[in-house]
């Protein structure tokens, strides 16, 4: 049962991406129920530790969505995340975790379609990779 659940934890910034996800709902777009949401004020709040913790708690993928570059509600939080996540992915790779399990992307408040698209794509990617077996690392 655990195998086909493949949970994806998504960290959404309050101002753009969370609203984008709401818009997907307003438009009744579909994406798999294993995409789960944690709201943060800004993508800049996403500490690499959050990603690791999500994996530890059983997630197979982590999505981090923020405002488009230049649109961050707090000016530049998303740029900070961009650099941080880049480093994190390289570190994960060193531990044998496929970097594709972490995806950082931008979804604007109006982009319901885009949110659904990114969510669906992420589910496909993770399905291909299969569950993350942390114990093997």
């Amino acid at each position: 049962m655990k195998d086909d659940k493949l949970t994806i934890v998504s960290f959404l910034c309050n101002w753009c991406s969370y609203e984008g996800a709401d818009k997907a709902g307003n438009a009744r777009l579909n994406y798999p129920a294993n995409v789960r949401v944690v709201r943060v004020m800004c993508s800049g709040r996403v500490d690499p530790e959050f990603v690791i913790q999500a994996f530890k708690e059983g997630a197979s993928g982590v999505l981090i969505l923020g405002c488009h570059p230049g649109d961050c509600h707090y000016k530049k939080g998303n740029y900070k995340t961009l650099r941080r996540i880049y480093l994190l992915k390289r570190t994960l790779e060193g531990f044998g975790i496929e970097p594709e399990r972490v995806r950082l992307d931008w979804v604007a408040a109006g982009e319901g379609e885009r949110f659904a698209k990114v969510a669906n794509e992420m589910v496909k990617t993770i399905e291909k990779l299969g569950p993350l077996e942390l114990s093997e690392v």
Binding site: M41, R45, V46
Partner: peptide, 24 residues
């Protein structure tokens, strides 16, 4: 925004209502 909190290497910075413990 919490950008400083995410970057603080010692965990001294806390984001009220969005603490690490709460998010974990």
């Amino acid at each position: 925004c919490g950008t400083c909190v995410a970057a603080c290497p010692t965990g001294a910075a806390r984001a009220k209502h969005f603490t690490k413990e709460q998010i974990f």
